[in-house]
Write a protein that binds this DNA or RNA. Structure first.
Lengths: 151, 151
DNA sequence: TAGAACGTTTAGTCAATACTGAACGCTTTT
DNA sequence: AAAAGCGTTCAGTATTGACTAAACGTTCTA
């Protein structure tokens, strides 16, 4: 399984995730789990990624927190195993929708701040509010549709 | 205009933008431009944000690069003035769609890497590919619809 | 009950990077 | 032609934060 193409995929996932504001190691972990043909233990991840166990432990738990991975048990084994969570992409996208709502909330606060008189600032904030309300609502509907088709 | 609510808005925008992987100063600059009632010069921004002119210069240009702000001229004045660009939110969201396409591309590479035989990895990568193709396409349509309504 | 196996926590290190102050180049003014 | 105004660049600084190694607590095993 450690063929060159797979390694490259893991590495590119690391870079892609890093570009999104998370860390490269986190992205590599996610990439590794994506191409793994079975759940992996912490030590297996340590070996495949060549990072410390402490880092893997932290990142794996963060991955779980985000809904990207989940911990699974293996019969007759007391180690923790990790695998990609079902609906991982939906759940991470749902988190993004949360950020969109936050932007809408910020826009609303901005409108409070600039007062009632018409102004360019007011127009911009109104546009921001409308845009993020629209996007948040619509993307939620997209997720809904996706779940209907694939869920 | 430097009332407490406005200051708070700027500060929260700084934090929100920072959480998205950019810098706090960048977010504050964007927030300031959002609530400004006219284009601002570098020195005005320096004063309002209390950061060095070098930093403002760099961040303002980055803001322009991202399509969030634009430089405007003021008659009889040779300074640069900045204001929020029209369709700023559309353009930043369009950039996000680019990231979604990149994820789809990565999924395709992953499928190459894991080979043709059925496997959990293959299933996951296929789901990832389908999901991001769907989302990329649909969000582009959302932007289209938004432009029709507001553009 | 001692010891091994696991995962987590924490103190410390190191690298990345955003910001500052100063120098620079260009333009305008006097 | 000198000086002031303006934006940019660059070297240096400081802060942030991810990672490592070691200690720790807990659970299982011999």
């Amino acid at each position: 399984m450690p063929n060159p193409e797979t390694r490259q995929f893991i590495e590119r996932m690391g870079l892609a995730v890093e570009r999104m504001g998370l860390t490269r190691t986190f992205g590599r972990l996610f990439g590794l789990l994506m191409v793994a043909d079975r759940p992996l233990s912490l030590d297996e991840i340590v070996e495949r990624l060549d990072v410390s166990k402490a880092s893997v432990s932290t990142n794996a738990r963060a991955c779980e927190e985000l809904g990207l991975a989940r911990r699974v048990g293996v019969r007759g084994d007391r180690r923790d195993y990790y695998e990609i969570a079902p609906r991982a992409f939906e759940s991470v996208t749902a988190k993004r929708v949360g950020a969109i709502h936050a932007m809408a909330g910020l826009a609303a606060e901005g409108l409070q701040a600039v007062g009632d008189e018409p102004s360019p600032a007011r127009d911009r904030l109104t546009e921001m509010l409308d845009f993020y309300l629209f996007m948040g609502e619509q993307i939620e509907e997209l997720l809904e549709r996706w779940r209907e088709v694939k869920g």
